[in-house]
């Protein structure tokens, strides 16, 4: 075990995958110079140009600012024998390549009757909460949950990021990795050896009996802080991180709700048709009889993200909002009883 940052863990997973399989290549804007710090692999931000020195310019490829060509070319390369990792830098830039992601990447295997496999990973960072304004602050994973054919990972910790990303590169299906920029510096003990975390298996961070809090990405940390404070008030919260939105470990959530009878979902994406909305619907459909209070969503309201530091941060889910949501659903029980 060694202490790694979230960013370092992403680099470590990529480095492992690059070393393990010569078919893995990395392409994206400014990847050669390791501008974002994920092209070194190790404890934290690595030396400048690390991967370029290690793997050479044949496998570490700077691209023009052409997201559509980059995503499509990675798909075509994956269909013909490579296993590309595409670094799209900001998640907001996925929209430039929407046609390729939705019409080619997600559909080609299906549409061609299984003739194509697309072992390709599209990494991007969600830069929300950092005063970068509306064009760089998106959290768009729910949009892609609506596109069958894609797999989606949303790691919340360094160890999950490393294990999930390694699985993603080894997988024969296309994966979108949404990495929260605000977690980049988060550090914890991580196994520096090879390990893989399966997709579709939630992680229970904390056991509890009164309420289930599902946290997504940064929402996991808001949920954990809330759970700690609630404990002092005698409320025992279970905290679950699905880790991958597709496939989604709905069983883990349903089993937990079956015990606690209450569900709060902390999801930094927008409210409408968000990940929290989908989880709410699943639980309402399949565990209605277990519910002892309303399902509560703690999400970002349906507005765009403003630049001014005075008005941005309070839009996102945090521990206080999560606690308020837990109390709302707990009160409902008191009334019923």
């Amino acid at each position: 075990m060694t202490v790694m940052s979230y960013l370092g863990a992403i680099g470590a997973a990529q480095r492992e995958a690059m070393e393990a399989d010569p078919r893995v290549i990395i392409m994206g804007e400014d990847v050669e110079a390791n501008v974002y710090g994920t092209m070194g692999g190790g404890k934290s931000r690595a030396d400048k140009g690390d991967f370029l020195q290690m793997f050479g310019a044949r496998r570490i490829r700077n691209t023009p600012i052409s997201e559509e060509a980059m995503v499509g070319a990675a798909a075509g390369a994956a269909m013909t024998g490579l296993r590309p990792i595409v670094d799209l830098s900001y998640s907001s830039f996925l929209y430039m390549a929407m046609d390729q992601l939705v019409n080619q990447v997600a559909k080609n295997r299906y549409m061609f009757g299984g003739q194509a496999s697309l072992p390709v990973v599209f990494r991007s960072a969600m830069f929300f909460g950092l005063n970068t304004g509306a064009h760089h602050s998106d959290r768009p994973y729910p949009m892609f949950m609506n596109v069958p054919g894609l797999k989606i990972m949303v790691p919340a910790t360094p160890s999950d990021a490393k294990g999930l990303l390694r699985t993603a590169v080894d997988m024969d299906d296309p994966v979108l990795s949404f990495e929260a920029c605000i977690l980049w510096g988060l550090k914890e003990e991580v196994d520096e050896g090879e390990y893989r975390i399966p997709f579709g298996v939630a992680r229970t961070h904390r056991h509890g009996n009164d309420v289930t809090i599902v946290g997504i990405s940064t929402g996991v940390h808001a949920a954990l802080q809330a759970a700690q404070k609630l404990e002092a008030e005698g409320i025992s919260a279970e905290v679950i991180d699905p880790r991958t939105m597709v496939p989604l470990d709905s069983d883990a959530i349903l089993n937990s709700v079956a015990r606690t009878g209450r569900l709060v979902i902390v999801d930094p994406a927008h409210t409408t048709c968000g990940a929290a909305a989908e989880i709410s619907a699943i639980v309402a459909e399949k565990a209605f009889d277990c519910l002892r209070g309303p399902i509560m969503r703690v999400t970002t309201p349906d507005t765009q993200i403003p630049f001014s530091p005075a008005i941005e941060k309070q839009l996102y889910p945090d521990a206080a909002k999560t606690i308020a949501a837990v109390k709302r659903t707990m009160e409902a029980r008191t009334r019923a009883a």
């Binding site: 559509e68 060509a69 499509g72 070319a73 990675a74 075509g76 390369a77 269909m79 013909t80 390729q100």
Partner: peptide, 17 residues
């Protein structure tokens, strides 16, 4: 137009491999 980047990727794999 959508398949043009796909063909480009097939050319990339040919070159790398």
């Amino acid at each position: 137009g959508s398949s043009i980047p796909i063909a480009t990727g097939a050319a990339l794999s040919s070159k790398v491999l």
